[in-house]
C-alpha cells in the first residue's frame, strides 16, 4: 500500500446537535491518500451523521471540514467535486437504465462530455456491471443496485470515497466481491467506510476509529487493534484431559478453566510464557496434547468493551 503523506480529508472538532441531542461531538478525523479508514460504531453512534456532514448533506453545528485543502463549508462546489459518496440507501433513480443513470451522474459531476462515455464504461467495468448497462435499475437485484451505487461514487474519480455501510443487505458472496472492490479502489482513492460488521474492518481497513455516542473512543491502525486484542492466554485441547489442579500447578499458570467445548483455557501469570512448560508436562504425563493456541479476545469483545451501554443510548439518526 503506497502511503503518500498528503491529506485528502480532514475534519476538525466536528459537532452536530439535533435539538438537545448531541449526535456528534468534537470529532477529529484525518485521511491520507491511499488509506482506508473504518468508522465503526453501534447503531445510532453518529456514523451516518458524520458521513452526511463530510459530504455536505448536513451542516455541522460547529467545526470545519476540508477536502484536499478546500473548505467544504465555504467552497462547497469545489470541495464536493472531489468527493464520491454512497449513502446508506443507494440514491438510484429506479426508472432509469444503468447507463442513463451513470451518464446523468457524470454530467452532474461535470465530467467532460468527451470523457463521459469512457468514464461510465470504466466505472461499470470496475463494479462488474459491464453487461448491465441497458437494464433498468428497478429490475436489478439488491447486490447489483449496491454496485450501481458504488459505480456512481467512483465515476468522477474523486479523491475521497465515502461509503456508508457498503455491504449492508448483501449475500456473503457479494460481500466478498464488494470488499475486494473496495480494497482495489483504495490504491487510487482514500476511502472512509462505515460499518458495524467487525470482520469487515479487519479485512478492508488500514485504520479504524470507533465511534460511540458521537465521540471517538478508539483510533488506531488495524495492527494496533490486533495487538490490543492479543492476550497471553492459551487455549488447550487434550486427548486425555488432566485435572485442572495439575495444570494450575505448572509454573507461570495463574488459573485454568474447563470450557464447554471440552477445551481448556489457561490464564498465564503476567510476564510469563507457560506454553513450553505446559507442552513438556503434557508429554511427560501422557495427556495427549491435541491443540495449543493463543486465545484472542474477539473483536466483538473489544468493541463491546469500548461501547458499553452504561446508560441508555439516545437514538440518533
Amino acid at each position: 500500500m503506497p502511503h503518500s503523506p498528503d491529506i485528502t480529508l480532514s475534519a476538525h472538532r466536528l459537532t452536530r446537535r439535533y435539538g438537545n441531542i448531541l449526535a456528534v461531538a468534537e470529532l477529529d478525523l484525518e485521511l491520507k491518500r491511499g488509506e482506508v479508514l473504518g468508522l465503526l460504531g453501534p447503531n445510532g453512534a453518529g456514523k451516518s451523521t458524520t458521513m452526511q456532514m463530510l459530504t455536505g448533506n448536513l451542516a455541522p453545528s460547529s467545526g470545519s471540514i476540508a477536502v484536499c485543502g478546500i473548505d467544504l463549508l465555504e467552497h462547497p462546489k469545489q470541495a464536493k467535486a472531489k468527493i464520491g459518496y454512497l449513502p446508506e440507501t443507494p440514491p438510484l433513480y429506479r426508472e432509469l437504465t444503468v447507463d442513463e443513470f451513470l451518464t446523468f451522474c457524470g454530467r452532474l459531476h461535470k465530467v467532460a462530455r468527451t470523457a463521459l462515455r469512457a468514464a461510465v464504461t470504466e466505472a461499470k467495468a470496475r463494479c462488474g456491471l459491464s453487461d448491465m448497462g441497458r437494464r433498468l435499475i428497478a429490475h436489478l437485484s439488491k447486490g447489483y443496485q449496491q454496485r450501481v451505487g458504488i459505480a456512481q461514487a467512483i465515476l468522477h474519480k474523486p479523491d475521497v470515497l465515502i461509503l456508508d455501510e457498503p455491504t449492508a443487505g448483501l449475500d456473503p458472496n457479494q460481500i466478498r466481491e464488494i470488499r475486494a472492490l473496495i480494497r482495489e479502489l483504495s490504491s487510487k482513492y482514500s476511502v472512509i467506510l462505515s460499518t458495524h460488521i467487525l470482520p469487515e474492518v479487519e479485512t478492508v481497513c488500514d485504520r479504524v476509529q470507533i465511534l460511540h455516542r458521537g465521540k471517538i473512543v478508539f483510533a488506531d491502525s488495524i495492527e494496533g487493534l490486533r495487538r490490543s486484542r492479543q492476550t497471553e492466554n492459551l487455549l488447550l485441547g487434550f486427548a486425555r484431559p488432566p485435572a485442572l489442579q495439575a495444570l494450575q500447578a505448572i509454573p507461570g499458570v495463574k488459573d485454568a478453566q474447563l470450557l464447554e467445548s471440552g477445551l481448556m483455557l489457561v490464564y498465564s501469570a503476567p510476564n510469563s510464557a507457560p506454553a513450553e512448560a505446559i507442552a513438556r508436562a503434557a508429554v511427560e504425563n501422557n495427556w495427549g496434547l491435541t491443540q495449543m493456541s493463543p486465545e484472542r479476545t474477539r473483536l466483538e469483545d473489544v468493541f463491546a468493551e469500548l461501547t458499553r451501554l452504561d446508560t441508555p443510548n439516545e437514538k440518533v439518526a
Binding site: T89, L92, L108, H109, Q152
Partner: peptide, 14 residues
C-alpha cells in the same frame, strides 16, 4: 422519500 435527493445534494451543484 427514496433518498435520491442525496445524489443531487452531494454533487457539485448549488
Amino acid at each position: 422519500r427514496n433518498k435520491t435527493l442525496t445524489l443531487l445534494l452531494s454533487a457539485p451543484v448549488s
